[in-house]
Computed example of a mutant assay.
Amino acid sequence: MAAMTRELKPVLVFDSGIGGLTVLREARVLMPERGFIYVADDAGFPYGGWEEEPLKARILDLFSDLLGTYDPEAVIIACNTAFTLAGADLRARFPEMRFIGTVPAIKPAAERTRSGLVSVLATPGTVKRAYTRDLIQSFAGQCHVRLVGSQNLAGMAEAYIRGESIADDLVLDEIMPCFVEMDGRRTDIVVLACTHYPFLANIFRRLAPWPVDWLDPAEAIARQARRLVPPAFDAEHPEQHDFAVFTSGNPDFSTRRLMQGFGLRTC
């Protein structure tokens, strides 16, 4: 008689919109035995313009429902704004759950820079967060770090990945503050501190006034998830775990088609 395979719990990936798909893509490579549930809080998108306390309350309330409904093995918070704001509260309220967070990749940027000029391209919420400034103080004290909070790039990325065109000049307006010249030195690393932004990385490279390293944290987040969720290759995940949930309950056709491209059915 063939040995029975045990059923694995899914990993839940949470983001304000579809930016977390950049993390999901990397996590699937490293965690092939796991199923994934992707949750987009599109009803609350974009997070960058929210006041802190209402947004934190929203995220905590959402997770009270999500964890009870889906019982995941672990949760990847694929959103800098959400995790820097609510990560500590989530871990305190749900101590039995593994939370893998997303924070601006300031430490690796400080380790890699040669010029000492680093920019962090983020949402306004992430830029103003004390968590971000603590990272700079702890890991990048010897660098000049410019924080650039974009009101519009996350929305542009959502439109672009759905197949809409975006004007070069509008993108350039958002990224130009990242490029600093000082004492004969130039910015050489830009941290992409929003998971939406890697979808636009090729446009950023084309429009940049000089070459820089655009630091995408998605692979590092996936590696951390792999470390916290041990492999279980003697088990299998049910196919029904691979789906996407939108808090609006009404994703449009292009979004549904995008989810299909990532192997997710839409609930």
Rank of each mutant, 00 (worst) to 15 (best):
R133I: 04
D173M: 01
L207E: 08
R25C: 03
G87F: 02
V245I: 14
N202G: 13
G249R: 07
R223I: 13
T247N: 11
R265N: 02
W50M: 02
G19R: 04
R133C: 05
E174P: 06
V23M: 06
M97S: 12
R257M: 05
L24R: 08
A167W: 02
M97Y: 03
H196Q: 13
D183Y: 05
A82P: 11
T84H: 01
V13D: 06
P231S: 13
T113P: 12
P104A: 10
G263D: 13
K9M: 11
R58V: 04
G184I: 00
D188Y: 00
E164D: 15
T5D: 14
I203Y: 02
A40C: 03
C267K: 07
V212Y: 01
I18M: 11
L147M: 14
A82N: 10
Q137E: 13
R91I: 05
I221N: 00
T102P: 04
E96A: 00
V120F: 06
I100V: 15
I106K: 06
E174C: 03
L264N: 02
D15K: 05
G263A: 04
R129Y: 05
I161P: 00
G87A: 05
R227W: 07
D183R: 08
D89G: 07
E7D: 12
T126W: 01
D89L: 09
R146V: 14
G101T: 11
F45N: 13
P209C: 10
R28P: 00
L8P: 01
R257L: 06
T5P: 11
Y38A: 07
A140S: 11
G35S: 14
V148M: 03
G155I: 04
V103H: 10
E33Q: 09
F83V: 01
